[in-house]
Computed example of a mutant assay.
Amino acid sequence: MSVAQKDYKKVTVKTLSDMKAHGEKISMLTAYDYTMATIVDGAGIDVILVGDSASNVMAGYQTTLPITLDQMIYHASSVVRGVNRALIVVDLPFGSYQSDPKEALRSAIRIMKESGAHSIKVEGGKEIKESIKRILNAGIPVMGHLGLTPQSIYKFGTFSVRAKEEEEAEKLKADALLLQKAGCFAIVLEKVPAKLAKEVAESLDIPVIGIGAGNGVDGQVLVLHDMIGMTKEFHPRFLRRYLNLYEDMTTAISQYVDDVKSVDFPSDKEQY
């Protein structure tokens, strides 16, 4: 049964908690620049993630590892200037929080002060709990991320579904509870079995947002460029393409090239 969307003038971490309590699903997409953020926010999205996936879709890297803290702040600042309603979450990039809780806090403070974003996201559970506590103690909202954690891709060696085996599933459930107890306001579950994701979502008071985790969670997130079909080669099972902008943009640009070559553009009406 669907639940009608309420007219939240400004989405906050409390809003997300209220949405879970009322059974309203949470919508979340990525954005990395002002123009896209303006469109996504204006369309009514609840949460905008300035993801380290910018490393892939904006910079062309194969993994999320190369993107720097300075680059994340640049993307986050651009997004903040285009958003009026959505809650903005920013990924702490690889290497900025895992090894040293003090460094984690410095990284989180830089993002909050220099970009104006509303919260940060980190990947991992028990291994990074001290970093999470340090950030939360400074009053910075933290979103967790479990399951397939792209910053650890070389440890996994594959982008396949995580927590299919009982031992890893039990660890994921324990980590999810740990993140809630630590004070995280929400958790992303990426590429885990739908049954497990539903179990985790029902066991927690905080919202669980899925990507490749079935529909039994409290919300969904996709990478914007995948969802609107700007990317071409990425075809995971969980991705629904709502547009095919790769083909549409290619056709439009090709037409522009032809019009310039044939002196069809600009026409008499398109010059001064």
Score class of each variant (00 low, 15 high):
Val208Arg: 08
Ile209Pro: 01
Glu168Asp: 14
Leu239Gly: 01
Lys155Gln: 11
Phe234Asn: 13
Asn215Pro: 00
Ala169Leu: 09
Thr149Asn: 11
Ala163Arg: 13
Lys133Ser: 14
Arg134Glu: 15
Gln220Pro: 03
Leu177Ala: 12
Val223Lys: 02
Pro141Asn: 07
Pro141Glu: 11
Glu199Trp: 07
Val208Lys: 06
Thr231Glu: 07
Ala138Thr: 13
Pro141Tyr: 03
Pro236Lys: 06
Arg237Asp: 07
Val188Ile: 11
His145Thr: 10
Ala138Asp: 15
Ala163Asn: 13
Leu136Glu: 09
Lys155Phe: 12
Lys164Pro: 10
Leu178His: 06
Gln151Ser: 13
Phe234Gly: 13
Tyr154Asn: 14
Glu167Gln: 15
Ala201Asn: 06
Leu189Ile: 01
Ile209Glu: 03
Leu222Phe: 11
Gly210Glu: 01
Gln220Trp: 07
Met227Tyr: 09
Leu178Asp: 06
Leu136Gly: 12
Cys184Leu: 10
Val208Thr: 09
Lys171Glu: 14
Gly216Ala: 01
Pro141Phe: 08
Val208Tyr: 05
Gly214Phe: 00
Gly210Cys: 01
Pro236Ser: 03
Leu148Lys: 09
Leu178Pro: 06
Glu247Val: 14
Leu146Tyr: 01
Gln151Met: 13
Leu172Pro: 02
Leu148Trp: 08
His225Lys: 07
Tyr154Thr: 11
Arg241Tyr: 04
Gly216Thr: 06
Val223Ser: 05
Glu170Lys: 14
Pro207Gly: 10
Ile228Ser: 01
Phe238Gln: 00
Leu239Arg: 02
Glu130Gly: 11
Phe159Gln: 10
Leu196Tyr: 03
Lys155Glu: 14
Lys181Arg: 14
Pro193Arg: 05
Thr251Ser: 12
Ser152Ile: 00
Leu148Gly: 04
Ser131Asp: 12
Ala163Leu: 05
Lys173Asn: 07
Thr251Gly: 02
Asp175Thr: 02
Ala169Gln: 09
Ser131Val: 09
Gly157Trp: 07
Ala169Tyr: 07
Ile206Pro: 13
His225Leu: 10
Met249Tyr: 12
His235Cys: 11
Leu243Phe: 12
Ile135Gly: 06
Met249Asn: 09
Pro236Trp: 04
Gly157Ala: 08
Val188Asp: 00
Ile132Ala: 07
Phe156Lys: 09
Leu239Val: 08
Phe156Gln: 02
Leu204Asp: 11
Gln220Ile: 02
Lys173Pro: 02
Lys195Thr: 13
Gly183His: 08
Ser203Gln: 11
Asp175Glu: 04
Tyr242Thr: 07
Glu199Arg: 04
Val217Gly: 02
Arg134Ile: 09
Glu202Cys: 08
Ala182Leu: 15
Lys181Ile: 05
Asp205Cys: 15
Ile153Trp: 02
Gly147Lys: 07
Asp248Glu: 15
Thr251Cys: 04
Tyr246Asp: 12
Glu168Leu: 09
Ser131Gln: 10
Pro193Gln: 09
Leu243Pro: 00
Ile211Leu: 09
Ala201Val: 04
Ile211Ala: 02
Met143Glu: 03
Lys198Pro: 00
Ile211Cys: 05
Ile153Tyr: 04
Gly157Tyr: 06
Pro150Val: 13
Cys184Glu: 10
Ile211Thr: 03
Leu179Tyr: 09
Glu167Asp: 15
His235Glu: 13
Glu233Val: 15
